[in-house]
Structure formats: structure tokens, C-alpha cells
């Protein structure tokens, strides 16, 4: 194998891991960074996005539009859940985490009851490209681009729009934001919906590559947790660099020992990291305030 194809293989492995970590963690990180709530129904929003995407795509709608539909559906469900449950628990963030677990149970088992144990999927589109002796899925390369694009769009959203300014003000000083006339409840509601929509988007993007089962959210959840734990509260200074570092670990271990060791390696990395960086990477980057 020549140098170029080896390098491409390594970059592809890393990019694949990075994309998976970023896409699965983005929604969780947005909600956590904003509200301090870890949404344990995160995996179910991903599942929701995947199911809707596949259902819409099988009606003949082009896949990109179907993915958008999946994302919007998850976002709407998020809006409803925020209104019914999360809103009443803002002053008890730890309890709201427990409540989201209840929602996760209802969603997983409810889908199992209504739609059965599996749903017919759609094949991975776009075929493959040949580099050197190996062939690579083109769609997975698209996913890598999508991960980078989503980070870019989120950055623009938080730093270049009115919502972004208000959202960041609300994170920094909720009382102050309220005093300045910001409807913080609306900001929280929109943020929760945004997080849910991002989860749905991840589900939609990965739907063509996976088997659709009601428990499919669990496939994403460990990766999204560890990314947020290593990253800390800030998605750009935390989750994104964390995904890059963890992507190296996961790609390396997966190439060496297979996927299960990739996951175990992530977990061990996380446990070691929390010992030295209690506030995650973003805590380190923003200065250790002790």
C-alpha cells in the first residue's frame, strides 16, 4: 500500500469516528451547555429522527429532505416535552435528568408496542470510492462533511444571530438576562427544541447506515455522554475538541482491536480525564478557576 492510501485510510477512520462523536453529541451538548440538564432521552430523539427519516424517504421523498423532516419532527417532539415536563423542573436540574429517563423508557417501549421490534430500513446511498486497494463508503465521507458543517452552522447561530446573543447572555447570567427583558423561558424552550432537532438530525443522517430498532438510541448514547463529559459545558471549546481527541482514541483502538475495545477505550479515557479535568476541556481552555 502506498503512502497516500495509508494516510487516507487513517484519515477516513478518524473522520468517521469524529463525525459520529460530533453528530451524536451536538444535541446533548447544546442542551447541557445551556440548561445544565443532561437529556437522557437524547437517544430516543435520535431514534425519532431516524424513524421519521426512513418513513418519509420510503414515501419517495429525496433523502436530504427526509433527513430534514426527521430533524424537524424530533425538534417538535422536544418542544412538546419541554412544555409538558422540563419547564416545570428548571429549578431542579438533577430531577429533570431523572424525568428525561422516564421519557426515554416511555419512548423506547412505546415505539416497540406501536411499530414492533424492527422497521424496514433504506440502504446506504452513494455507493463507494476506491482509494488504493480499499473501497470506502461515499456516504460516510458525506457524514464527515455534515459534522463539520453542523459545527459551523451552530457557531454562526450562537455568535452571529440575535438568538445566539440572547442565548449566550442567558447562559452567562440568567437573572441579568431576565432583568434586561429576555424571556428566558422561551430561550430555554427553543434551546431544548434545538437540541432535540440536532439529535433527530443525527438519527436521520445515520438512519441509512443502521438497523432501525426502538433501542437504537443506545448505540449513540455512550459516545455522546463521553464527548460531553470530556468536553464540558461549551460546545465549541469543549465538545468539538473532545470529539477530535476521542476520535483519535476510538479510531486507533477500533483499528487495532475492534469496535468494542474502541468503546472501552473511550470510557477509560473519560474516567482518567475526569480525575484531572473536573470541568472538562472547556474548563481547561477557559482557565482553571480555583
Amino acid at each position: 500500500m502506498d503512502f497516500f492510501s495509508t494516510a487516507f485510510a487513517i484519515i477516513y477512520q478518524f473522520g468517521d469516528a469524529f463525525a459520529f462523536l460530533v453528530l451524536s453529541a451536538a444535541g446533548l451538548a447544546v442542551i447541557f451547555g445551556m440548561m445544565g440538564v443532561i437529556n437522557l432521552a437524547h437517544g430516543e430523539f435520535i431514534m425519532c429522527g431516524a424513524y421519521v427519516t426512513v418513513a418519509v424517504a420510503r414515501m419517495g421523498v429525496p433523502l436530504p429532505l427526509a433527513i430534514v423532516a426527521g430533524s424537524i419532527a424530533a425538534g417538535l417532539v422536544g418542544l412538546v416535552i419541554e412544555r409538558l415536563v422540563i419547564r416545570h423542573l428548571y429549578h431542579r436540574p438533577l430531577d429533570s435528568i431523572v424525568a428525561t429517563w422516564g421519557i426515554s423508557l416511555i419512548a423506547t417501549q412505546g415505539v416497540l408496542i406501536v411499530l414492533g421490534s424492527t422497521m424496514q430500513g433504506i440502504g446506504t446511498p452513494l455507493g463507494s470510492v476506491q482509494v488504493g486497494a480499499l473501497s470506502y463508503s461515499t456516504y460516510r465521507i458525506v457524514l464527515m462533511a455534515a459534522a463539520v458543517l453542523i459545527l459551523l452552522v451552530l457557531w454562526l447561530l450562537f455568535y452571529r444571530t440575535r438568538y445566539g446573543v440572547i442565548a449566550r447572555a442567558t447562559i452567562a447570567a440568567p437573572q441579568m438576562a431576565r432583568a434586561l427583558g429576555v424571556d428566558t423561558r422561551r430561550v430555554y424552550a427553543l434551546t431544548f427544541a434545538l437540541g432535540a432537532a440536532l439529535a433527530g438530525l443525527a438519527g436521520g443522517l445515520y438512519a441509512p447506515t443502521m438497523t432501525l430498532v426502538p433501542t437504537m438510541g443506545a448505540t449513540f448514547i455512550v459516545e455522546s455522554f463521553v464527548t460531553v463529559v470530556v468536553g464540558g459545558a461549551d460546545i465549541f471549546l469543549g465538545a468539538a475538541p473532545a470529539a477530535a481527541i476521542l476520535g483519535v482514541i476510538r479510531a486507533g483502538l477500533t483499528a487495532w482491536q475492534g469496535q468494542f475495545f474502541g468503546q472501552i477505550g473511550l470510557l477509560v479515557a473519560v474516567i482518567l480525564v475526569i480525575r484531572v479535568l473536573p470541568n472538562g476541556l472547556s474548563g481547561l481552555i477557559l482557565g482553571n478557576r480555583r
Binding site: V37, L94, V222, F225, V228, V229, V270, P278
Partner: peptide
Amino acid sequence: GRIRGVFIGIVTLS
């Protein structure tokens, strides 16, 4: 490592 409440939950769950 002095991690906070939320993180204890997700690390143990992971």
C-alpha cells in the same frame, strides 16, 4: 476528580 452531580450520573451510566 471532583466531578459534579450530573457527570457522576452519566459516567456511571456509561
